[in-house]
Amino acid sequence: MTGADLPAWAAWLVVALALAGAGFSLTGAVGLIRLRTFYERVHAPTLGATLGMALIVTASVLYFSVAEGHLVLRDLLIGLFLTVTTPVTLILLGRAATYRDRAEGNADAPPDP
């Protein structure tokens, strides 16, 4: 553990940010269980991929910046990467579900745009 060289305010702030981020991610996963249809459930993981990720990345930037004594922005790349890739996966998954529902003629299939 190298956490000992962190001042108390930074430790509390890092923990608060990480807990808030984990809370949003967990809420997203709960939504994956609780919401009833697929098209509702697709919205749930976005919680972890946006605000949950952003809070945890901020905690990481703060931790390493304080611990190393200079600004470490490396973890922002995770944020950038997730922001660019998540829409691609979700849109493609939504398209696949739409295609399958329409091909099978399900009642809850999306209408034509």
């Binding site: 098209y39 509702e40 697709v42 919205h43 749930a44 976005t46 919680l47 991929a49 946006t50 922001t83 998540t86 829409p87 979700l90 849109i91 939504g94 398209r95 739409t98 999306p110 209408p111 034509d112 745009p113």
Partner: peptide, 23 residues
Amino acid sequence: TATPGTLWIQYDSNTGRLLLHVL
């Protein structure tokens, strides 16, 4: 897509219409 509650389902480039699913 990054805004929870809205999901981009389909975009038709011929008509320029976008189908969105909203929670």
